[in-house]
Design a binder for these strands. Structure first.
Length: 150
DNA sequence: GCCAACGTTGGC
DNA sequence: GCCAACGTTGGC
């Protein structure tokens, strides 16, 4: 079982949206590295920190779980901002897993995360990091669960 | 709104 | 295959 951190803009899909929808396809990823994590490494049962990005209070807002293996992202075929003219049904370019709500937590802000030297290697805290899906080291996962999660 | 960092694109 | 230009991300 692996651990992940997945960024979502709350104006798009927030932890409250996930709670009310129960499960959500993680559509719209258009970065190859992030796609590869979903397509090649995520398994059902993997645990996820649900992270709010590009908002007033960025940080970990909840816990979720991978509940369906990667399959072609439907939005690449549809009109709209995620449409990809180079993608075909025979040759899809983008994939997504489904993610299931686990629980909401009191926000662990990015500034709070930065306060802990134990977490200083987390991808999310590195300067210039823009990757929307990153693996979380099991030690970092446990540290956050036992020290920062209420 | 700014801007640093980084990924992608496309001309050569 | 290089690399400049451009677009996007995301914290601040």
């Amino acid at each position: 079982m692996r651990y992940w951190l997945m960024k979502s803009e709350p104006s798009e899909v927030s932890i409250d949206d996930l709670e009310s929808m129960k499960t959500v396809p993680w559509y719209g990823v258009r970065n190859y590295q992030a796609r590869n994590f979903m397509r090649d490494q995520m398994r059902v049962g993997d645990m996820v920190f649900f992270y709010h990005s590009s908002c007033a209070e960025p940080g970990i807002a909840g816990l979720a779980e991978v509940c369906k293996l990667a399959y072609p992202d439907e939005t690449q075929f549809e009109e709209g901002k995620y449409f990809d003219p180079k993608a075909t049904r025979e040759n899809p370019r983008w994939y997504n897993v489904d993610v299931k709500f686990s629980r909401k937590i009191p926000l662990i802000s990015i500034s709070e995360l930065r306060r802990h030297p134990e977490l200083s290697n987390m991808r999310i805290l590195q300067k210039g990091n823009r990757l929307s899906i990153t693996p979380v080291d099991p030690l970092e996962w446990d540290y956050i669960k036992s020290n920062l999660l209420r």
